[in-house]
Design a protein around this nucleic acid. Structure first.
Lengths: 143, 143
DNA sequence: TGGCATGGTGTTATGCTATAACGTAATGCT
DNA sequence: AGCATTACGTTATAGCATAACACCATGCCA
């Protein structure tokens, strides 16, 4: 799996420290967003004891584009497509089902372009963009 | 100002309870987002004592479209244009300056349409949408 | 008129989310 | 060797949010 990438400025899996790797694996194995404390609970067996250990790992993972923070949930997911993110630097959007908790990550160039337009026109320099839809996924229906 | 509006389904200022009115006034008077605890501190003189009093008022105000919650800050602002919101039901977007903390609320029909398209195509039924740009406003420059 | 549902209020207690501040250890560079 | 950088581990604390209970006003309608 992709050892040949010399021109990326982001970290990759093989660069991760033990704690970072554990946290990323935990997110990967989950089928729903996890809070930092959820993660901590799942990693006590591995020796983790304090929230900070998790938060520090999460910070690195998020910076590296390997995980995302869902602001409206105070929770984290692993990135659906880290390679793409690293390349395009694009903004991720999330559809979050409030019934089954599953999260669908997507990107929309038009949305990104419009927001970038607004920012330019208003002299705003964005550093981080959050787009989150809360609702019900197809499986969970409209009820 | 504007007592003639019979066909709105949302509450308006004159329908608010004392606590709700106090909280809305506080948000209105602020030039930056306030956390629930910020609001509580500013209303102790009015007799408020517990976080829940503020949270309950905030819930009503947000439901009524008179205030917004900023997910990435865990804080609240008063709505820049409640009338428009009530009419269009539109999604608000926010540009949040990380230097001066000021918030600019705006709406973009194209963004809304694109997100609605995505949702329809994926069978997702959104109930609430969050769009927040973090960065630096014109006044605070690009530094 | 009484009964009841609804919804706002006030209070205490508690739980969840996040970071400050400290010291230690490993690494890499010059 | 000396120094900068970065991760780590721990304790304590700060900040955000809600559960559970009791009380009271209103409005409805039997």
């Amino acid at each position: 799996m992709a050892h040949n990438h010399a021109d990326h400025n982001h970290e990759h899996r093989e660069d991760l420290t033990r704690n970072q790797g554990l946290v990323l694996e935990t997110l990967n194995a989950a089928d729903a967003p996890l809070s930092a404390y959820d993660i901590l609970d799942r990693l006590r067996a591995e020796g983790l004891r304090a929230p900070l250990q998790v938060y520090r790992a999460l910070e690195k993972l998020v910076d590296a584009g390997l995980a995302h923070r869902l602001e409206s949930l105070n929770a984290f997911v692993c990135c659906a497509n880290a390679e793409q993110h690293a390349r395009t630097g694009g903004t991720a959007a999330f559809a979050i089902c409030e019934n089954c908790r599953r999260v669908d990550e997507f990107a929309d160039e038009v949305v990104e372009a419009r927001l970038a337009d607004w920012a330019r026109e208003h002299g705003f320099t964005p550093t981080r963009t959050t787009i989150e839809l809360r609702g019900r996924c197809r499986e969970c229906g409209t009820a």
